[in-house]
């Protein structure tokens, strides 16, 4: 039987799972919408995985994404790694001489600068969501266009409308004004793609030395309009890897494989965890003025973890008998 490694990327918008083998071939991938229910969706993903591939040997697992610690609790990861490193690892595997990675996800966007196979600089968006996927999602909704058709529509335009991309709120009002002036929809959509790219390059990519080969990944890479906008603004060809939407998960699966080979055992709990009944409870602790928001995760009535407190009052207790509040 072949050996496989599981990579899990729990992001704000999507939860991705992949299985890779020793040669980095991807056996199967799952791209699911997180919908604010990371645990349920993760379980669903594992269940689908199990149904699809049947009984295989999974030797190790890794988790990444903003929900990586949560995912670790559920699956028992061998390695928990941040998104930047995971993305860099997987991109380097697909294009070894990649120099720039553009990653645009739902809530955050990143730029990773690589030279000679090493991450030398990176940046993530700050407190603003204007250069991210949710910006496009929102505007597509506003225009009444399914996000899946967005890119194709943008490609039809020859005459983009300039839309302010600095702030999602201003962009929306600017877009409405342009609509009311009678511009056609293709041009507005193409203008939005350009606005996102402009904002990304001015905000996240500010002062970064962007050199080719450039790789573009993350959920937004499905949008051909954005790819076209990047290519026209950078003057460089932009590559989109085959598994652009699960690159983070692939990277962490690769890291998990290395880790397991090094330590010779795995913490992975097996795909059976899809059947475990997880419950999450949250309370606001009233022990002090911090009023921390405590989260408790139970699996089959056993407390797996508590976190969210600043003082350790809750996270240190693992005793089942101590109930929350």
């Amino acid at each position: 039987m072949e050996n496989y490694y599981l990579g899990v990327d729990v992001g704000s918008v999507s939860t991705n799972l992949v299985l890779i083998d020793d040669e980095n071939n991807i056996l199967c991938k799952k791209y699911l919408r997180t919908q604010g229910k990371p645990i349920e969706i993760l379980k669903e993903g594992l269940k689908e995985l199990k149904e699809e591939i049947g009984d295989v040997n999974i030797l190790g697992a890794g988790s990444t994404g903003s929900g990586r610690y949560l995912a670790d609790l559920i699956i028992g990861a061998d390695i928990v790694k941040n998104e930047i490193t995971s993305h860099a690892i997987s991109s380097l595997n697909f294009i070894p001489d990649v120099q720039t990675i553009i990653e645009i996800g739902g809530q955050d966007s990143k730029i990773i600068i690589i030279r000679d196979g090493i991450v030398v600089d990176f940046a993530m968006n700050t407190v603003c969501a204007a250069g991210t996927g949710s910006f496009l999602d929102r505007q597509a909704y506003r225009l009444g266009i399914p996000i899946e058709d967005f890119g194709r529509m943008a490609l039809k335009s020859n005459n983009p409308v300039r839309i302010a991309g600095r702030c999602a709120v201003f962009a929306e009002s600017d877009m409405i004004h342009k609509q009311q002036l009678g511009h056609n929809q293709e041009d507005i959509v193409w203008g939005l793609c350009q606005a996102l790219v402009r904002n990304y390059l001015n905000n996240v990519g500010k002062g970064k030395d962007i050199k080719g080969p450039v790789m573009f990944q993350g959920g937004v890479a499905a949008n051909m309009g954005i790819k076209r906008a990047f290519e026209s603004q950078l003057g460089l060809e932009v590559f989109i890897p085959e598994y652009f939407d699960v690159m983070g998960a692939v990277g962490v699966a690769m890291l998990a494989r290395n880790e397991v080979k090094k330590k010779k055992f795995s913490n992975f709990k097996g795909l059976e965890i899809a059947d475990v009944d997880y419950k999450v409870r949250g309370i606001e602790c009233n022990g002090c003025a911090n009023a921390c928001e405590i989260v408790e995760i139970c699996g089959d009535n056993k407390i797996l973890a508590r976190y969210g407190d600043k003082c350790g009052k809750w996270s240190n207790i693992k005793n089942e008998n101590t109930k929350l509040a």
């Binding site: 941040n82 998104e83 930047i84 490193t85 030279r115 090493i118 991450v119 600089d121 990176f122």
Partner: peptide, 20 residues
């Protein structure tokens, strides 16, 4: 995430000192 990635990057660069 940012702090972890930053430290990872520094370690990575450190390991391949000659390339920098």
């Amino acid at each position: 995430t940012r702090v972890e990635a930053f430290i990872d990057m520094m370690k990575w660069r450190d390991k391949d000192d000659f390339n920098i």
